[in-house]
Write a protein that binds this DNA or RNA. Structure first.
Length: 478
DNA sequence: TTTTGAGTTGTTCGA
DNA sequence: GTCGAACAACTCAAA
């Protein structure tokens, strides 16, 4: 038998189950080597954020163990993929190079260039391992991409989702294995200070952790009450699957199909299960938008917003990032983000609206902060969601829809449990004032052990007047 | 080509 | 406390 090894370049598909490129490589019946390239030192704006570096460290360790258990090898390299992938392919004597596609403009460009370089005497193939539908597969009836979610979602529902592929359990290692870096040497973990220690009890990076989380969440009440409970940060009933999905530790096809099965079997009421599926489709819609409108990454999609006059006050921005705005629901969210690398979806909208419309700070500053602090930060979803909340995206929230941090808090965190969890200094404040401590009478504050301005900040802005100001600024660009 | 209906997530005001 | 209307037109998608 000739020894004609296959190189699988893994990127955001760090799993053995339902992995089209890896599956095809294994099916080639030749030795397989897997490669992961971290390009954090050469990537520009979208170099890995801090929270994701932590995640990557752990997920690569488990991935290596999983691949080795199957009999394969994982090669780790750091630097420019355009140089490294061909170099490793040469060292390996690869006859074929496979990968699963990525969809951001700069990634597509990189892949195209590499395909060219590598195709010299080798079979080079790319697969869809990341999306239910390729962005170019979903078109309106008149041609062109959807810019509105609802008709997009209708199209998604009308299409069949393929069957998941069998997990790769057996790989044969090549005779000569190119050298690998050691993930420890990459120093992806934070040291001084170790701000990620709050991540550990909350997350289990890796394919096994993803699978486990998914299975366990399916057994909870979460899916069966999803349409209501997903809005309740105090209940914390959401799936928390986003970082697992982002790193490709679980396939979106698998999740979609399994939820469909649950609905069909009557284990999850359709009205709730469908909403979860629709959330998965929102992710796809973000990919659809950023694929077709790559200018979105740094400009508002609605041109007129380019003229919007932002305040961009640095002190207020810092207060926002630290969770010291004086609005409890906002502060709780920002502190959860910092400690867990995650923020409840409802609260993301509240803090986003607050940054853009109460502080009049450019949505791109918020986007950059999320990029650095969220373990699930995804260029497509982060960009599209910030444009949505800022009101400048394709199918965005109308600008005049300005979240009130007090009423949102009272509506979705009615007992203040979420606030108390993340802002312990407010723990003794009665529920009546938990979302507006500045309205509490002095004796109530005293009993709760709070001196405003010392133990907890006074509001850094007045929501009522800032709301009017935001609407006036909006009027000015119309 | 023209027309028609519709569009994730909200707030405030006044009755 | 609860309810409906106003907020702003504009663009998209499909017939």
């Amino acid at each position: 038998m000739t020894d004609a090894p296959t190189l699988v370049w893994l990127r955001e598909d760090l799993r053995l189950d339902d992995n089209p490129a890896l599956r095809a490589a294994a099916d080639r019946g030749q030795p397989v080597a897997c490669l992961y390239v971290v390009d954090d030192e050469v990537a520009g704006t979208f170099a890995l954020g801090g929270a994701q570096r932590w995640w990557l460290h752990h997920t690569l360790n488990t991935l290596r163990a999983d691949i080795e258990k199957a009999g394969g090898v994982l090669i780790l390299r750091r630097g420019d993929a355009r140089v490294i992938v061909p170099a490793v392919a040469d060292e390996l004597g690869a006859h074929a190079v496979y990968w699963n596609r990525r969809y951001m403009a700069w990634q597509i460009e990189q892949d195209k260039a590499l395909k060219e370089t590598l195709s010299d005497g080798r079979e080079v193939k790319s697969f869809n391992g990341r999306l239910l539908n390729e962005p170019w597969q979903i078109e309106t009836k008149t041609g062109g991409p959807y810019k509105v979610y609802t008709p997009y979602w209708k199209q998604v529902q009308a299409r069949d989702v393929r069957n998941p592929l069998a997990k790769v359990t057996k790989l044969s290692a090549p005779a000569r294995v190119p050298e690998s870096d050691n993930v420890e040497a990459w120093e992806l973990l934070p040291t001084r200070p170790n701000w990620a220690k709050g991540f550990e009890p909350v997350w289990t990076p890796g394919e096994k952790g993803a699978r486990q989380r998914w299975r366990e969440w399916l057994k909870t009440q979460g899916p069966s009450t999803y349409n209501d409970s997903r809005n309740r940060p105090d209940l914390d009933d959401t799936s928390r699957m986003a970082p697992h999905i982002h790193f490709g530790e679980i396939s979106i096809v698998t999740m979609y199909r399994e939820m469909q099965d649950k609905i069909e079997a009557g284990e999850v009421p359709e009205e709730h299960g469908k909403v979860f599926l629709s959330e998965l489709a929102w992710r796809e819609f973000s990919y659809n938008l950023t694929y077709h409108f790559p200018q979105m990454f740094d400009e508002p999609l609605m041109q007129k917003f380019a003229k919007f006059e932002w305040d961009n006050d640095n002190d207020q921005f810092t207060a926002w990032t630290k969770g010291l705005t004086g609005y409890p629901i906002v502060d709780a969210g920002m502190r959860q983000l910092w400690h867990e690398g995650h923020m409840h979806n409802r609260v993301r909208m509240i803090v986003g609206s607050f940054l853009v419309k109460d502080l009049l700070i450019d949505w791109r500053k918020g986007m950059d902060w999320f990029w650095d602090t969220l373990v699930c930060a995804d260029p497509a979803a982060n960009t599209a969601s910030w444009q949505w909340v800022a009101g400048c995206g394709a199918d965005a929230a109308p600008f005049f829809r300005i979240f009130n941090p007090i009423s949102q808090g009272e509506k979705f965190d009615p007992d203040g449990d979420y606030v108390k969890r993340h802002c312990p200094e407010l723990a003794k404040l009665p529920k009546k004032y938990i979302h507006k401590p500045w309205e509490a009478p002095p004796f109530v504050l005293r009993d709760a052990g709070i001196e405003l301005g010392k133990d907890y900040p006074r509001p850094i802005v007045d929501h009522g007047s800032k709301r009017k100001e935001a609407l006036a600024r909006y009027e000015a660009i119309k």
